[in-house]
Design a protein around this nucleic acid. Structure first.
Lengths: 298, 298
DNA sequence: TCATATGCCTGACTAAAGTCAGGTATATGA
DNA sequence: TCATATACCTGACTTTAGTCAGGCATATGA
């Protein structure tokens, strides 16, 4: 069974990434070296900071610099100080010139053309089936590309997730969310050995989080499970929950508990389907309506 | 609508070919230059003729030769005369040494590993959805990669298709197929301006054919529509039919006719759905049970 | 049997991709 | 304010990829 799944995924990889990928590169290149074309594309009509380009394209700093000089030499790009809010004068940004914008538009047009050349030979029915299957593959691949790892709660990406989490629940709770009324969670409680904060990332971008407090002489407590809208419905929340439970179980805890607000119906459904059973309140959390517990397999 | 389809295909291309493709290459390379790794892989445990490798990998003859020398130098491959039936002493074949076979097995193992690393993070349900969607995408992409082009009927690829066609119908007809009993079709009739032979190819491999005779003062006549098993169910037969009709219509013919055997039920269904109507016999073909005609839009 | 084509090879070359060691200007924390 | 880090840059380099012309041995059709 597993072997069959693997074989199918390999066939897919071979057909799609090799053949379609090669086509893609050829269309993009337009006589120009591929690296230059990709860079031009990535800068885009809105421009981009050099560091961002480096990260997105995974290039060596020197190499990228040289590529930018070449595009500048061809009059397609200008590189200047990035006018960002903070105002770090070391940071520089690349911006397309008029000629560069024209070139970018041409790449965009050709990308459309390539996509259409794939769909065009098919009947309308098959086109729609293909696009639907492509969307499914894409979503599920994205799901599988999400990485869940421990992260200090003080990390800016962790902070961003917790802020997004607070915003989300403020929107969903009947009476908003005032952190002062809620039981506080301190960073130290989410740092080993007291507990852990897990961050879910997609291509290094934070897209979810979750934490567990390992209370002495009490069940572990799950906190702050949150998943970004962009990756909802892909099972990331469930994976996060599993990872948190695993963390607690591996360290000897026999049960996990959590509290939740009655408005978070999908979350409650997820907890139930993950094996959580409703219990009597074990704390006095102002915003909680339900308390759950799950016994962990040893 | 079209724009939406294109946008979806582009998102797919970006996510899949770029990210998964890059992963794929990295896994395959193993410190070795990618071209060498790919070549080693393509030679495979059974060995391969040099010309076949050149065609499959799309490499320059000199470049391939050099790559083979490098692999030979590393003790992974030996290149010698190909022991083929015909015995063309110019043809040479590459064979893996024991070390090469070990390396190949390692690549195979890593390919499995990579495929599994994509599936592993998902729940079993999502894994199966992903694999199903991958298979659908793959099949439909293959369908869209099939190219239909005119080809002289004397071309070896055309001959191979016609032979496969004869084998197929011999298997399906109640009383086999004896070409001597069937109305003959001569090459000259399938060469412009008397008619045309169209060949369907997938990555330069022949996978289907079809022909049309442009009779003077009579409807055009469709002959030898055949599609290889490997690409059946992808609408290639229907596309072939469309192309043949278009060829006739563009040259002024107002109708197409064809005859067919009663056992070829899918073909008959296709003709009907393509707008063909059954007519009285217009010839004395020994193997024909049904005769069809379609009026072409001008 | 001889001109021509084919399959594979080598040598000589170029372009593209990528790496590494500094260097300069700016930011940042003690 | 000073050591250290960061963002980007330049110069010098290597490796990989790919092309082209020509050569040798073998096949093939007239």
């Amino acid at each position: 069974m597993k072997a069959e799944l693997i074989a199918a995924a390999r066939r897919f990889n071979r057909t799609v990434t090799q053949r379609v990928g090669a086509l893609d590169d050829e269309y993009m290149a337009r006589g120009r070296p591929l690296a230059q074309a990709r860079l031009l594309w990535e800068i885009g009509p809105g421009g981009a900071e050099v560091a961002v380009l480096r990260a997105r394209l995974g290039l060596d700093s020197g190499y990228l610099s040289r590529l930018l000089r070449t595009l500048e030499g061809d009059g397609l790009v200008t590189v200047g100080p990035a006018d960002q809010v903070g105002g770090d004068a070391r940071v520089r940004a690349a911006v397309l010139t008029d000629a560069g914008r024209a070139e970018w538009a041409e790449l965009d047009r050709r990308s459309d053309e390539l996509a259409w050349s794939i769909l065009e030979p098919l009947t309308e029915q098959r086109r729609e089936r293909l696009v639907a299957a492509m969307a499914e593959v894409e979503r599920l691949l994205i799901a599988s590309m999400v990485v869940i790892e421990p992260c200090p709660p003080s990390d800016p990406r962790a902070r961003a997730c917790v802020r997004a989490y607070a915003r989300d629940i403020a929107r969903r709770f009947d009476d908003g969310f005032d952190p002062a009324l809620s039981n506080p969670v301190h960073d130290e409680e989410l740092v080993p050995p007291a507990g852990v904060f897990l961050l879910a990332t997609l291509n290094a971008e934070p897209v979810g989080c979750g934490a567990v407090k390992l209370h002495r002489d009490a069940p572990a407590e799950i906190k702050r499970v949150w998943v970004a809208d962009s990756v909802r419905g892909l099972g990331i929340g469930r994976r996060m929950l599993d990872e948190l439970e695993r963390y607690a179980a591996e360290r000897g805890w026999a049960a996990c508990r959590l509290d939740t607000n009655g408005n978070l119906t999908e979350a409650i459904a997820m907890y139930r389907s993950a094996g959580y059973r409703e219990i009597e309140p074990y704390n006095t959390e102002y915003y909680a309506h339900h308390w759950f517990e799950k016994h962990l397999a040893p």
